[in-house]
Amino acid sequence: MNKNTLTINAFSMQDVTIGPKYHITNTSLEIPDHPLFDIDDRLKSIKVKLVDPKDCHFKINTIMDVIPISTKVLGNIGYGMSNTLTGVSVILTGADETGVQLHEFGSSNGYLDEKIKFDTDGTPSSDDTIILIDVTLKSDFEFNRKTCEMVFNSADQFLQPIREELKVMNGRNAAESFEYEDIKHPGKPKVAVVKEVAGQGAMYDNMVFAKEPGGIEKGISIIDMDNMPILLSANEYRDGAIHALV
């Protein structure tokens, strides 16, 4: 396998529905409206619903993250092949049962259409179907790294069955396929990007090198690396080497 090349096959989801189980075809996705696993004792509920960005004037808890759905098919993060869903994205929101919001510095709870700007690099496209995962903690929770990581992890676990089905889909049936090569330009000035990211505590952290693109499992917290600089290739970045916990 050429370790300089990353192929991303994009499957365009035209039809996203709620049903009894996970099921995916080349153009459609069915998901349950709640996790099929036992949720953590600290949680009261995890509710999942589908949202149309063009019709979303309703109240939400603070937006913890916006997450793409992608999975490794061959190789590791940064090379080989990944299958990715387009036309669908995930918004994770969270609060406790009394309404205390899960955030570090400023909350985005309120009406969804007023609290997010669609069609940016970090937010869903207004043509997407949004999978809104709303996590409610029991009221006696402790706001610390472990609790927040558990919330992000629960959302990741909910998404994993989608990735498992997506993993075995044939790239030939993808709507689009992108090939990214690590191209060198000898003789040109050498340029690097330095990204300074959060690394101080609960909701102020980042995970790197999870097993799945934009995933959590096996990821390493930047805090646990004492915030030391690490080098990532452009393809690792494009392939979801980072999961934000901010």
């Binding site: 690099d121 990204k195 290739s233």
Partner: peptide, 25 residues
């Protein structure tokens, strides 16, 4: 991060030899 515009722009510019992203906390 998945769609990072800074990485997209700098990594694809033929006038520079892009080396990578240093992530620091």
């Amino acid at each position: 991060h998945f769609h990072d515009p800074l990485v997209r722009v700098v990594a694809s510019d033929p006038d520079v030899d892009f080396q990578g992203v240093i992530l620091v906390g």
